[in-house]
Simulated scan of single mutants.
Amino acid sequence: MKKQLLTLVLVPALIFGAVTIPLPKEASAASTGRIINSVSLRQSANENSTRIRYLKEGEKVTILSKVNSWWYKVKASDGREGYISTSAKYIQASGVTSPGDSNTNGGSGSGSSGSTSANVQKIIAAGKKYLGTPYEYGSSRDNTRTFDCSDFVRQAFLDGIGKKLPSDSRGQGSYVKSLGHAKTNWRDLKPGDLMFFMSYKGTSQSNYSGINKSTQTITHVAIYLGNGQILSTYSKDSGGVRIDSIENRHWEYRFLFGGSAL
């Protein structure tokens, strides 16, 4: 009887001793980044958001997530969390996974593949098909019956290559800057680049002299066609979507910066 009891005790012990219990997998290492040039750490993913502090060249950060194509959420070396530009001009990143939906603001849809020059032609062609479409401030992003300036630019990119830009001109400007493509001389721009302008202060160049343009707010966006011409919409009286020359006109005096959104 004692022998039988001993057997009953030992057998389960031997069985369970042979079972390998899987351990939880170790969490994957966090993405890391190294600051290449000093960049603002901001409270939210917006260029106008409050700056927490500057991240210095050489500083290492932990990349918590890639919010979209132009913002990372990071943890700085002092433990503070915030948002910084994804531009390779500011940060060298490793092991970063993009958000699942690549067609959110600033992302590019499946139609954005192909050479840059081919995409530029598609964007410009898509924009030109709306020539004469009436202007409406704050136009609906759900239809193409009317446009304001940023809605028109957004629709040209969406129709042309399936790329969904931010819905307002300031967001579009921030996106271009985040890519490191911004230029302050319009003559350095290429066809298809976006151009950003400050408020209208008259037709005379003297009305814009002495203005610190780096502090000015974007009030208009246009698509550069080359040869000193822009494609945009800016008022009901102007006739809606149209092509204008910029040299020696208020457009040239109001120009803040421009660059590629591709």
Rank of each mutant, 00 (worst) to 15 (best):
L10P: 06
A261V: 01
R249S: 11
S232A: 15
Y175D: 07
G33Y: 06
F147R: 02
Y200A: 02
L231K: 03
W251Q: 01
P12A: 02
I243A: 02
E26I: 13
H220D: 01
S113F: 11
S49C: 03
S69A: 12
Q121E: 13
Q229H: 14
G202L: 00
S87M: 14
K2Q: 11
I15M: 09
A27C: 07
S77T: 11
T116A: 14
K201N: 13
Q229W: 08
N105K: 09
A18D: 06
I218T: 00
D244V: 03
G17L: 08
P12V: 04
V221Q: 04
K177A: 10
I161Y: 01
R145F: 04
V19L: 15
S38Q: 14
L6G: 09
T217E: 15
F196H: 02
K56Q: 13
V11R: 03
N248K: 14
G160H: 00
D78N: 14
I21T: 11
P24M: 15
Y137C: 06
I52Q: 09
K213S: 10
S94K: 11
G258N: 01
A30G: 08
Q4E: 10
L131K: 12
P166I: 00
V67W: 09
N185P: 10
G259R: 01
F197K: 02
G202V: 00
S85G: 03
R242I: 04
P22R: 04
M198S: 13
F16A: 12
T233V: 09
A13R: 07
S178C: 11
P191D: 05
S260H: 05
G33L: 11
G162F: 00
I63S: 08
E252F: 00
E26V: 15
I243C: 04
S206N: 09
E81P: 04
M195S: 05
A156S: 12
I63D: 06
R51Q: 14
G258S: 01
A45P: 08
G82S: 06
S214V: 05
L41M: 06
T219H: 05
D237E: 13
E247R: 13
S150W: 00
G127Y: 00
Y200G: 03
C149A: 10
P99W: 03
S232V: 10
A118N: 14
G171D: 05
S140R: 03
T97M: 14
E81M: 12
F196T: 02
D193K: 04
L23G: 12
K201P: 03
R53L: 13
V153L: 02
D193G: 05
A18N: 07
K164F: 10
K128N: 09
I21W: 10
G173T: 03
L5V: 09
A126N: 01
I211K: 04
I243W: 05
G132A: 03
R51W: 07
A93H: 08
S31R: 03
I91P: 04
P191H: 01
S150T: 01
S209H: 07
Y135R: 06
L262Q: 12
G138T: 04
D168I: 11
L64Y: 05
S117M: 09
R249W: 06
G160R: 00
T144D: 12
V9L: 15
S87K: 04
N227H: 12
T20G: 11
L262C: 09
S98F: 10
G100S: 14
P99L: 07
V67E: 13
K25D: 13
Q172L: 07
S260K: 09
S87F: 00
G160T: 00
T7N: 09
K25V: 12
N105S: 14
V74R: 08
G173Y: 03
G192E: 01
